[in-house]
Amino acid sequence: MILIVCVDDHNGMMFNHRRQSQDRVLRADILELTDGKKLWMNAYSRKQFAESDAEKIRVDETFLDAAGDGEFCFVENADVSGCAERIEEIYLYRWNRDYPVEVYFPVDLSVWKCVETKEFAGSSHEKITRERYTR
């Protein structure tokens, strides 16, 4: 599976049981990145996306188990530590900000290689950085 995760400068994902931030341009980038492939997420994450995107998204509360090889998983509030051996690639979207944080992205990126970086302006963030990691 291929993970898509949004993090702050300290790899924080959530605070007070909520996502740190969201951005419509980032969502468009995710949909473009995953175009033609399955994009899995839970109902919490699905709320960010428009109804018109419904045919592109698979919603399942056990999506990390349901996703197959080469399929994308948008992770906000799910624990990926139990499926670490199944992760093929990671796309990290960095907010380039410090936010309050309680939940951190648990994958040790030091054993991964950053093979691609893309920066773009979001609708709510002047700079969002997308990093692609492979083993």
Rank of each mutant, 00 (worst) to 15 (best):
A84G: 01
G36V: 05
E131N: 02
C6F: 10
N96M: 02
M1N: 02
E85C: 07
T134P: 00
V59H: 09
K38R: 14
E89Y: 07
T117S: 14
G68F: 05
E76A: 10
A43E: 14
S123T: 05
I4K: 09
R46L: 05
P106V: 01
D8I: 02
D98A: 10
D8A: 01
S124G: 13
S45T: 15
C83K: 15
C83T: 12
R135V: 09
F49R: 03
V25R: 06
L26T: 04
Q20T: 05
E102P: 03
V59A: 10
T62D: 13
S124C: 12
A50P: 07
V7Y: 01
F120S: 01
W112C: 02
N42H: 07
N77F: 03
D53P: 07
R94S: 08
I4L: 14
D9F: 10
G36T: 06
A43M: 10
F74M: 07
E76D: 13
S52Q: 09
K56H: 13
V103Y: 06
Y104R: 10
G12C: 04
C114I: 04
E32T: 11
S110Y: 11
F49M: 02
I30W: 06
A78M: 12
E55P: 10
E55T: 12
S123Q: 12
V111R: 14
K37D: 12
E32P: 04
Y133W: 15
Q22H: 11
E85W: 08
L3E: 01
F72G: 05
E126P: 12
T34W: 03
E71I: 06
L92T: 05
R94I: 02
L92Q: 04
V59P: 08
F105T: 01
M41W: 05
T129I: 10
L109W: 08
F72S: 00
A43H: 11
N16E: 14
K113R: 14
F120P: 01
H17P: 01
A84E: 15
S21V: 01
W40F: 15
F49T: 00
G82F: 12
S21P: 03
D79G: 08
Q22S: 15
A50Q: 12
E116C: 09
T117D: 09
I4D: 02
C114A: 12
A78R: 13
E85V: 10
